[in-house]
């Protein structure tokens, strides 16, 4: 038991060392600042949305999104989000009606956890812009299952993967029960 405890502690330290080196960043990533600031009142629409987080954000195709939704419910972001370490930004179209715009974001933290949230800003004077429509840069298809989703490369639905997992487990149970014991006293 004592020997085992010793071996266990050595093993634990070795494992910790290995993964402490492999994954230095692991944390709750959270929003620390933004431009425009939350609940800001602006005279003209911003050219871009800049969100600053306290930890680096994971870069990757389709991982991070920033959406600007107008008082009319239309989409006003002018392109997809780009990442520079812990800053995520997205261009904004020339805004239309005055009123409250909502910034929705969903980013993937460097540790793999999605982080999402909402901010708002107010625009006093109406602009002359038009909202994003299907096919415009940054336009988000809110119903990707209806076909033509952003960057669909014909993967399998989740349930197919899960059924595969269950089948694999069944096969494993069969093997574990059927394998003959070599030495069976009694």
């Amino acid at each position: 038991m004592r020997k085992f405890a010793k071996a266990l502690s050595v093993l634990t330290l070795a494992g910790l060392g290995l993964f402490a080196l492999a994954a230095p960043a692991s944390a709750h990533n959270s929003l620390t600042g933004s431009n425009p600031a939350d609940k800001a009142v602006l005279d003209a629409g911003p050219a871009e949305i800049v969100l600053t987080f306290d930890q680096p954000v994971q870069e990757g195709e389709g991982l991070n999104s920033i959406a600007v939704t107008g008082p009319d419910g239309e989409q006003w972001q002018g392109g997809s989000a780009s990442v520079d370490s812990n800053v995520v930004s997205a261009p904004v179209r020339e805004l239309g009606p005055s009123g409250t715009y909502t910034i929705g974001y969903r980013i993937v933290s460097a540790d793999g956890h999605p982080v999402s949230g909402e901010l708002t800003f107010n625009v006093n004077t109406a602009g002359s812009g038009t909202p994003a429509a299907e096919g415009d840069p940054g336009w988000i298809d809110m119903d990707p299952s209806a076909g033509g989703g952003n960057g669909d490369d014909g993967g399998m639905p989740i349930w197919v993967w899960l059924v595969g997992a269950v089948v694999l487990l069944g096969a494993g149970l069969f093997v574990a029960l059927r394998i003959g014991g070599g030495k069976q006293p009694e």
Partner: peptide, 19 residues
């Protein structure tokens, strides 16, 4: 956004995310 998950998406996730 993905309607389905392909094998290449999973390997890409493994390559980029420590989890």
């Amino acid at each position: 956004h993905a309607a389905g998950i392909s094998f290449s998406r999973v390997t890409e996730y493994v390559a980029t995310v420590s989890a």
